[in-house]
Amino acid sequence: DWEDIVRFLRKLFELGEEVVIGDWHNHHREEIKRLIEWLEKHF
Rank of each mutant, 00 (worst) to 15 (best):
V19S: 09
D4Q: 07
V6E: 06
E18F: 12
E18D: 07
H27Q: 10
H42K: 13
H25I: 15
V20F: 13
G22E: 09
E40M: 14
L35G: 01
D1G: 12
L35S: 02
R29W: 15
L15D: 02
L35T: 03
L39I: 06
E30T: 08
R34L: 14
G16V: 15
W38A: 05
V20P: 09
D23M: 04
D4S: 13
F43N: 02
E14H: 05
D4N: 11
V19P: 03
F8E: 06
L9K: 00
V19E: 04
D1R: 13
D23V: 03
R10K: 14
W2E: 01
I5F: 13
F8P: 00
W24S: 07
L12S: 01
H27I: 12
L15M: 06
E31I: 15
W38F: 09
V20R: 07
D4K: 14
E18T: 12
W2K: 01
L12Q: 00
L39V: 07
E17Q: 14
F13L: 09
K33M: 11
D4A: 11
L39S: 00
L12W: 07
L9D: 00
L15Q: 02
G22T: 04
K11P: 01
G16H: 10
G16C: 05
E40V: 14
E3N: 05
L12N: 00
F43K: 04
R7P: 00
H28I: 15
L15G: 03
I32Y: 07
W24G: 05
W24Y: 06
R7W: 03
H28M: 15
H28E: 04
E37W: 09
H28P: 06
R10Y: 13
G22Y: 01
I5K: 02
I36H: 02
F43I: 08
K11E: 12
K33H: 06
G16S: 11
E17W: 15
V6G: 02
L9S: 00
H28T: 06
K41A: 07
R29N: 10
D4F: 14
D23E: 03
W2P: 01
E31R: 11
R34V: 10
D1F: 15
K41M: 09
R10M: 12
I32S: 01
I5T: 01
V6I: 14
G16R: 02
R7D: 11
I32P: 00
I32T: 01
W24D: 07
F8L: 09
E37S: 09
E3L: 12
G22V: 03
L39Q: 01
R7K: 12
H27G: 07
E17C: 01
K11D: 09
R34T: 05
R10N: 13
L35I: 08
G22M: 04
I21K: 15
N26Y: 04
E31K: 14
E3S: 13
N26C: 12
E40L: 15
R10I: 13
K33R: 14
R34F: 08
L12I: 10
D1W: 15
V19L: 14
E31A: 13
L12Y: 03
